[in-house]
Design a protein around this nucleic acid. Structure first.
Lengths: 137, 137
DNA sequence: TTAAAATACTACTTAATGGTAGTATTTGCA
DNA sequence: TGCAAATACTACCATTAAGTAGTATTTTAA
């Protein structure tokens, strides 16, 4: 499994925000803490606010905050917003029409692993990982 | 999970070869059956022969054949040859120094899924998938 | 009402992957 | 020995993801 770098950053940023649990975060603050470049982080935050995972407020005393409880934001939501989750759930050999009825030669072998993958992403919430005792941000 | 397109093709080509079980395959023959472009397939086959998954023979009556029993060629070998397997086995959040002792916040959640992934790729042989009753090539 | 401090937008640059074109080399047999 | 039929090599083009730069807009408080 390899998420896009942008997905990695999105999860890192949002899990940091979940851990800190502030009312509002400025881009400046996040950039300092997370070591992401200014423009790159801002572009990403704008995307995340467009898909309503966070809210943004422009102007003086503006910033970013969660739009809902972190218990209701799953890793799959974040991946979906940034790069689309679908590609991780398709046929491992790239056949568009691969299914139980019309399987590719790896279908049977792959199905179970794919389910595990989906389960991991769609059942892990930001809140859950924010509770972990990790030194990394 | 999303393999590179080149890995997808490599597995498709090699599993076709394993299924047919000929002595020798020409590029022309594979191109026709698999609908891959001429140059792209040839480049890929040259790579696969460089890493000794297959042997190639130039000149008249040349072509490609397996260099060993398909029971001894695993999906992970193919992925490794084409794009490297390592990236699929690192930290899901991209931390280079993520480990059990120094975990990222998703480490615990991810470890089990990653193991499953590794197991699937490193224990599934070309022979195994060539025995499946798939109509796709 | 204006200046300061924040985010948003548009457009470009760079790097990696996917894909193509043309030429060179190898091999075997008439 | 030279031609036909195969793969190998080198170099380029196209597309997508990653990252950067500069300008515009929004908001608030003095």
């Amino acid at each position: 499994m390899k998420l896009s770098k942008t997905s990695e950053y999105a999860i890192r940023i949002l899990s940091y925000m979940a851990k800190e649990n502030n009312e509002l975060f400025s881009a400046k603050q996040l950039i300092e803490k997370l070591g992401v470049s200014d423009k790159y982080l801002r572009k990403l935050m704008t995307l995340l606010s467009k898909v309503q995972l966070i809210n943004s407020k422009q102007g003086r005393y503006g910033g970013y905050c969660f739009s809902k409880n972190t218990k209701d934001i799953y890793i799959s939501d974040i991946i979906n917003a940034v790069e689309g989750m679908d590609k991780y759930l398709g046929c491992i050999l790239g056949f568009d029409d691969c299914s139980d009825e019309n399987p590719c030669s790896m279908h049977e072998v792959w199905v179970e692993t794919r389910e595990k993958l989906l389960k991991t992403f769609s059942e892990t919430s930001l809140y859950e990982i924010s509770q972990k005792n990790s030194l990394k941000i």
